[in-house]
Every structure is written in C-alpha cells, then in structure tokens.
Design a protein around this nucleic acid. Sequence first.
DNA 1: GCAATAACGGTCAAAAAGGATAGTATTATC
DNA 2: GATAATACTATCCTTTTTGACCGTTATTGC
Lengths: 115, 115
Amino acid sequence: MELAEPRILKYNGREYPCCASLTMGIIGGKWKTVILYHLINGKLRYNELRKCMPTVTERTLALQLQALEEDGIILREVFHKKPPLKVEYSLTDLGSTLVPLIQAIANWGDSVAEN
Amino acid sequence: MELAEPRILKYNGREYPCCASLTMGIIGGKWKTVILYHLINGKLRYNELRKCMPTVTERTLALQLQALEEDGIILREVFHKKPPLKVEYSLTDLGSTLVPLIQAIANWGDSVAEN
DNA sequence: GCAATAACGGTCAAAAAGGATAGTATTATC
DNA sequence: GATAATACTATCCTTTTTGACCGTTATTGC
C-alpha cells in the first residue's frame, strides 16, 4: 500500500504532520490547558497558580510554564530584581487567541464529567 | 502554604482535577485529534486512516483507535465476519459533540503554522 | 533567631507514550 | 502459485512526560 507524503507544518522549530497535531504539540500534555484555563481571567503569580492546581508538582508546573513561554503563549514578568520576589504570568496576544479554544475544552469536559 | 482541595471529576473510570484536563485525557496525545479530524467528514476504514496519517505506526494507530472507542468517542463496525475484511470507524453521537472543538483546534494550528 | 514565603532548579526514578519490526489468517488478484 | 491487501497483534525498545524529594537565596513576620 502506498502512503501519501504529508505536508509538514512547522512551529517554533518543531515539525508536525497535521494542523491538529501542531496545536496539540503546543497545548497538549496533562497540565498546559489547565494553566491556560486559569490564566483566562488575568495574570497570576506562580504560587497563585499552584493553589489553583494543587495536584501538580512544582517542578512540572515550572517546566510547563517554561514551555508555554517558549512557544509564545504566555508572558513571564519578574518584579523586584535580585531575588525574584514576584513573578506574574499572563497570556500573550497569541495566547489570547487560544481563549475560545480553552473555554470550549473546559466546557466540553464539564459537560461530560460524571461527577 | 495551604493548597485547596480540588474537586475531582470522573470519566470512564479515570479521575481528573479540572474540566480542561478531563477533555485532554480523552482527546490528548499526539494522534487522537488527528484521527478525529479525519473522521469529521464521515466513516473511514483502518487503511484509509493510515493513508491520511502516513507517519503514525500501525501499533500506535490501533492503540489510539481502541482508546477512543473505549471512551465512547468513535464507533468501530466490522463487516464480513470470520476474517475481519472491512472495519469502519466513525464518530459516535458523543464524538460528534467534539466536532466544533476539533475544528477549532485544526484551525488554530493552521493559523499559526509557519509553513 | 526561627520559621515562613517566594519562585524556582537539580537529581533520580517511575510511568506513559510512541516507534521499529515482524507476524497472522483469509481472500482477491495477477 | 506467488503476491498483495485487510486489519490488525506481539515483542521489544526508546523517548517523553511526570512525579518525589530536597536545596537555594533573600526577605519578612513572630
């Protein structure tokens, strides 16, 4: 059987075989949509996010935040230099274009939850 | 620091801490949204899906199809018993409720692709 | 002067996801 | 009578993701 050549899509140095998988490459994984969901209503500090997501470990949260920042989805702002006392995360302009998507993801999950 | 108790959501025997992660638990991963994207326009046979997704391995495709079936998102229909010569996959009613979501995921990926 | 807070980073380990490759049973095709 | 197609399954292995747990640096509160 012959398989067709896929058209390769690129984003931020990574390659994807389909527009759907590109999106999933950016917001996929266990925690990224949860982070974005909590950022819909505005900036949150690192520890505020932790309180919203008590079951994620600190290391994983930090990794996911870095990945989202690297992909241009969220902005990381540090206040008061030397020891970084205050860090705020918010959606970038690009990240804001994901809001309807995140909301739809959350709503669908809500609608099918059994509890 | 005190962390709040999360409200646990359940679906198909699994537990999630957030409505967004529930959805991702069902359609997350590298290939599930791609499968669903190709099923939007109607039934497809196993090998038709393979041609749509030439870069996925057979094992992974079969696993993802099983998972989607188990979660009630797709329907697997076998024709001509004995050796299963023809198998068709399609969206269930529940799976159809994901169509707007899948389309939004695909559109967003399309809009940010660099190529 | 001790603990708490803030925002992580480091290391190691476990779990989950995904890939490579080959095999199977039956029918259809050349 | 060999080959191809169909729809997978079985092993084995590698990569990726996630978790557990502890350390850091400076400031504030008791």
